[in-house]
């Protein structure tokens, strides 16, 4: 990618971040709450897209990493009374290590087998949450006590029951994730990853370690998903087995495909549309998950590039 194109992408990301920051001053209460959730889910989807969009690996088990972050942070707070920043850092680390282990095994498979293997590992994760109910409280889950709803950062304390505080923390996480990905993808290592996606055989022949490149991205992806899960658990104070379920593996896929796999901002766009749509539909019908099925099929049949992927193809070829 040319330097000019990179600069354009950087400006675009900064502009989007500026808009997101100012939204907190105009949105009504409930939308602030929704936007907070959306930004965290967008971080999750960004992590997913790092894998699907830039190395071409479709995981059906990313709920595993989201739930790992959620539980690693929440349980250390709940059982051991850790401070929130320490718990968060620990959770991101734990998710990265888990991703390293799972990736080292799962990346030995390709294509369909990779999808099924990741699906199976996530299923084991969901069952683990239920099996160790003595710690996780199973299906019922745990609510973090009021005393744990305050983050002590040394210089300042943050009250997580405050909606705008939560918004800005989620915003900060999203901004950090976008910038990390931007820099990573712009770097030499990032270009190896996309080379793997575009032609694995040729990349290998050129002397690059394809497995290492894949594993590196898998770990980054897992850590990012874990960070999203950790923030979700700590900000909203609830840990439950629902977060480890199959649906949480499908949602980032849906967000990414809709927004455009392999576009930096695609997952964010996908989340904005899908989460908003699901929330509105749930007021009209109990069968609102129908929309997940319909959107998936429509996308895969007629719109495989997603929103930003199409925008890139037609109008803005420089989009990352």
């Amino acid at each position: 990618m040319s330097r000019a194109a990179f600069a354009r992408n950087a400006w675009l990301v900064l502009a989007v971040l500026a808009v997101l920051f100012s939204l907190q001053f105009v949105l009504p209460d409930y939308q602030v709450l929704m936007a907070t959730r959306m930004m965290l889910l967008a971080v999750f989807a960004l992590g997913f897209n790092a894998l699907l969009g830039y190395v071409g690996l479709l995981s059906l088990g990313h709920a595993l990493f989201f739930a790992c972050g959620l539980y690693a942070s929440g349980l250390t707070v709940y059982h051991f009374g850790w401070g929130l920043p320490a718990a968060f850092v620990f959770a991101v680390g734990a998710s990265a290590v888990l991703a390293l282990l799972i990736g080292a095994v799962a990346l030995r498979t390709i294509r369909v087998s990779f999808m099924i293997v990741t699906l199976m590992f996530a299923q084991v994760g969901a069952l683990t949450v239920l099996y160790f109910a003595a710690w996780t409280n199973g299906q019922e889950g745990l609510s973090l006590p009021a005393s744990a709803r305050v983050a002590d950062l040394g210089v300042a304390t943050l009250d997580l029951t405050d909606a705008l505080t939560r918004y800005n923390i989620a915003y900060g996480l999203l901004a950090a994730s976008l910038l990390i990905l931007l820099v990573y993808l712009g770097s030499a290592r990032g270009r190896i990853a996309t080379a793997v996606r575009d032609n694995e055989g040729r990349t290998e022949m050129l002397g690059f370690n394809v497995f290492a490149a894949k594993l590196e991205m898998f770990v980054l992806s897992g850590a990012m998903s874990g960070a999203a899960g950790a923030a979700y658990g700590l900000l909203f104070g609830y840990l439950g087995a629902t977060f480890a379920s199959f649906q949480y593996s499908i949602e980032p896929l849906l967000f990414t495909l809709l927004g455009g796999a392999g576009t930096l901002l695609g997952p964010l766009v996908g989340v904005l549309f899908m989460v908003g749509l699901i929330d509105k539909l749930s007021e009209l019908t109990t069968a609102y998950l129908l929309v997940i099925g319909v959107v998936l099929i429509v996308l895969i049949l007629w719109f495989p590039k997603g929103i930003l992927g199409t925008v890139r193809e037609r109008w803005l070829p420089w989009l990352m």
Binding site: T286, L289, G293
Partner: peptide, 27 residues
């Protein structure tokens, strides 16, 4: 058939089918 049985695309499509069947039955 329209997906030409591409393995990955088919999995995504059948996940879609899963939700459509399940939620239609719910309705």
């Amino acid at each position: 058939r329209r997906l030409d049985y591409n393995p990955e695309a088919t999995i995504v499509a059948t996940i879609g089918l899963l939700y459509i069947l399940q939620q239609t039955v719910l309705l």
